[in-house]
Every structure is written in structure tokens, then in C-alpha cells.
């Protein structure tokens, strides 16, 4: 047992050192976002600042305000996309996950296979063709172009399905004999027990949609998302380095808060995430 204790200490030290390396860039980002501009380009660069300031953040909103489109519009766009994707994905994936986990119907096996293969198809591989589909549907330059393609997420469906299949069949069977329809069983019996899985899908959907750049799907300024604009500023000139990191910090805070709050549920759901051969 003595050896274990020593081993634990070693493990802790190892994690701490690696943790410092992992966190260092994040620390630097936060530090630089509160550094006054004069201190950003001195040699040697310092790892602390004596005069923290919020100048970079006010500058950021100032610069964005000089655009034709007000800053609040970008925030509104990002929030709309995030909320719409997250809510729609939770609803759509829950129903589909319940079906794939608990209902026998023709084509179920096939669908399950397709979903696992589809997990390999990341959106940027089919981005070009998605563009053509969106163009055919006349959705280019609307917020729908950012929302709709991310709703039916194979990873989300997979996680939900795995989590629901852990539920005992008897609960669902008894509800069926009471005459409840599948829709009611899904929302009144299954989903109240799937809060951790919902939280997980929520956090993944939230993260990806909050960070979504409008890319090629939207080129009208008034429909661009916040990350797009902040990225535009940060790539424009090195003198705006402070503003760029301020933007990064601004974008980082919401997902970190949401993840910290839901971390436990996420791990609980991922416990069922396995793929059996």
C-alpha cells in the first residue's frame, strides 16, 4: 500500500507539470487581454502585468462599432445560432436516439451502422457540397445556413442512443401497455431520466455553435457571427494583438462556464459512449 501512496504523489506531480504546460497559453491569453498596449511589445515579454486594464475589451467593441453593423448584432447572431442549434439538436436527437435504442423497426440496424460511419464525416469534408445544397435551397446568407446543417449530429445521436439503451426495457413496456404513444413515452418517461445525456449534447452543441464561423455560407455583414468578426480583426494587423486576445477571452468564457457546471453529467454520459464491435 505504501508504494501506491508514493505512486499517487508521482501521478499528481506529473499531472501538475503537464497541466501548467497546457494552461500556460490560456493564462497568456488572459494576461495579454488585460495588459496595457505599451506593455505588449516590450522585451523581454513579461509573464505578469502591474497595471491591468480593460482597454483591450473596450477597444474591441469600439473597433467593431466602427463597422457598418453594430456589435450587438454579431452577438445576437451568435446567440441565435447557438440557442437554435442547441435546442433543436437536443429535441431531434432525443427522439431519434430513443427510437434507435428501444424500438424495433425495419432498417434499425442499417441506421445504426450509418450513424457510426457518419461520425467519420466531419462537416469540413462535405462543406463544399453542403454549400451547393444550401444554395439550391436559397439559404445562403441567412442564419438558417449556419443552423440547419449542425442540427442532425451523428455524434450527438450516438451518445443519446447509448445512454438511453442503458434504461430497463420494462419501464417502457409498462408505459406501452398503459396505452401511451411513443411521443409521450419519449418526453414524459425517457427524457426526464436522461438529463446527463441531454447536458452532454447541450455542451457539445453549445461549444461548436458558439465557436462557429460563418465562413462561406454567409457573406452579408449583418448575418455574420461573433467569432467571424473577432477572427477578421485578429488577422488584420499585428498592432491589434491585444484586441485579438481580448476577443478570444470574450469567446472562451461562456463555454468554460457551461462546461464547468455540467462536467459531472458529461462524464456520466460519456461512460456509456462505448462502441461495441
Amino acid at each position: 500500500m505504501h508504494g501506491r501512496k508514493k505512486g499517487n504523489l508521482f501521478v499528481f506531480i506529473f499531472l501538475a507539470i503537464l497541466g501548467i504546460f497546457m494552461f500556460f497559453p490560456v493564462y497568456l491569453t488572459i494576461l495579454m487581454s488585460v495588459k496595457p498596449v505599451e506593455e505588449l511589445f516590450i522585451f523581454p515579454p513579461k509573464l505578469y502585468t502591474l497595471r491591468p486594464t480593460l482597454r483591450n475589451f473596450t477597444d474591441m467593441s469600439e473597433i467593431i462599432r466602427q463597422n457598418r453593423v453594430p456589435f450587438s448584432r454579431y452577438i445576437f447572431n451568435s446567440l441565435s445560432v447557438t440557442v437554435a442549434v442547441t435546442v433543436m439538436q437536443c429535441v431531434v436527437v432525443s427522439m431519434a436516439g430513443f427510437m434507435l435504442a428501444k424500438c424495433r423497426f425495419k432498417g434499425r440496424k442499417f441506421l445504426n451502422k450509418i450513424i457510426v460511419i457518419a461520425m467519420l464525416y466531419q462537416s469540413n469534408m462535405i462543406y463544399l457540397m453542403q454549400y451547393m445544397v444550401l444554395a439550391k435551397l436559397n439559404l445562403i446568407n441567412t442564419l438558417y445556413a449556419l443552423i440547419l446543417p449542425s442540427v442532425a449530429s451523428p455524434v450527438g445521436l450516438f451518445l443519446m442512443k447509448q445512454s438511453i439503451s442503458q434504461m430497463p426495457d420494462s419501464v417502457i413496456e409498462s408505459a406501452k401497455t398503459d396505452g401511451a404513444g411513443l411521443f409521450r413515452i419519449c418526453w414524459q418517461i425517457v427524457m426526464p431520466n436522461q438529463k446527463p445525456a441531454l447536458m452532454t449534447i447541450l455542451i457539445f452543441a453549445f461549444q461548436s455553435s458558439w465557436n462557429m464561423q460563418s465562413g462561406a455560407f454567409v457573406f452579408r455583414e449583418e448575418y455574420k457571427t461573433l467569432p467571424t468578426v473577432i477572427n477578421q480583426i485578429s488577422t488584420s494587423s499585428p498592432a491589434r494583438a491585444g484586441i485579438a486576445v481580448a476577443g478570444a477571452v470574450f469567446l472562451l468564457i461562456p463555454p468554460v462556464l457551461v462546461f464547468s457546471a455540467t462536467q459531472k453529467q458529461v462524464i456520466e454520459t460519456m461512460a456509456h459512449s462505448g462502441i461495441k464491435s
Binding site: 462535405i126 445544397v133 442540427v151 442532425a152 411521443f183 419519449c186
Partner: peptide, 23 residues
């Protein structure tokens, strides 16, 4: 009833993943 519940996912999945992949 099963297909009806799957429908929202299937429509979006088909339009924005399957069709682009097949195309």
C-alpha cells in the same frame, strides 16, 4: 410511429449529410 419520431432527424441528416456525401 417509429419513423415519425425519426423523421426530423432523418430529414436534416439526409439533406445536410447524406446528400452532400453522395453528391
Amino acid at each position: 410511429e417509429c419513423y415519425l419520431m425519426l423523421l426530423p432527424f432523418l430529414i436534416l441528416f439526409t439533406v445536410f449529410t447524406v446528400v452532400p456525401v453522395l453528391m
